[in-house]
Simulated scan of single mutants.
Amino acid sequence: MSDTYLRFVPYDSHWYPDEPAAAAAIKVARELFPLAEHVAVELEEGLTFFDAGANTESIHCPFCGSDIEEWWGDAMDQGAASRFEDLSVTTPCCQKPTSLNDLRYIWPAAFGVCALTVVDPGVTSLASEQLRTIEQAMDSPLKAIWQHL
């Protein structure tokens, strides 16, 4: 059986909510996704890559749009060697500095130290109003990541 994880990851990869904001975000997510199996704020010990799992289609340069998936594997290996303390990279196609977090992931992915996670949310899409409601509760702009395992 497969699972779907809807993760809300702050755009600032080092930001995490205080306890009241985390509790508020969990409450809102439970109201928005009443069929969910589990809702929690996960706090990681270091930067973690929250990917789309089987949903992942491709990875592109944020500047020129080139497919950089083949290069990305080596860039991730180098980042992992430093526990992702430095996400800085130079794109292989146009030689511009950027971050592993700022690459264009199809489906979205992000690095972060926390995520609001909704396991099997019972929906297959997210309305912009729902995202804004969770962002207000968590007090941070968030990237929605649909992970399929």
Rank of each mutant, 00 (worst) to 15 (best):
D3E: 07
T4M: 13
T4S: 14
R7P: 00
V9Y: 04
V9H: 09
P10N: 01
P10F: 02
P10E: 00
P10W: 00
Y11I: 14
D12M: 08
S13L: 12
S13R: 07
H14F: 13
H14I: 11
W15F: 14
D18E: 15
E19V: 13
P20G: 06
P20A: 07
P20Y: 03
A21F: 09
A21P: 08
A23C: 12
A23N: 15
A24E: 14
I26C: 07
A29G: 10
A29I: 04
A29E: 06
L32N: 09
P34Q: 06
A36P: 12
E37A: 12
E37R: 07
A40L: 11
E42M: 06
E42V: 07
L43M: 12
E45D: 06
E45G: 13
G46M: 06
G46S: 15
T48V: 10
F50M: 08
A52L: 08
A52M: 04
A54C: 09
T56E: 14
E57V: 15
I59M: 01
I59L: 06
C61G: 11
P62R: 00
C64W: 08
G65K: 01
S66P: 05
I68R: 00
E69N: 11
E70W: 11
W71E: 08
W71Q: 03
W72N: 12
W72E: 13
G73H: 14
G73I: 10
M76Q: 15
A80C: 10
A81Q: 10
R83V: 09
R83H: 14
F84N: 08
D86F: 02
D86Q: 04
D86V: 01
L87N: 02
V89E: 04
T91P: 04
T91L: 01
C93K: 01
C93V: 01
C93H: 01
T98K: 02
T98R: 03
S99V: 10
L100Q: 02
L100E: 00
R104I: 12
A109D: 01
A110L: 12
G112K: 02
C114Y: 03
A115K: 01
T117K: 15
V118Q: 02
V119L: 15
D120Q: 09
T124L: 12
T124N: 14
S125T: 05
A127L: 14
A127S: 14
A127R: 11
Q130I: 01
L131V: 12
R132N: 13
I134R: 07
Q136S: 09
A137W: 02
M138Q: 07
S140L: 01
S140K: 02
L142P: 09
L142S: 06
A144L: 09
I145N: 00
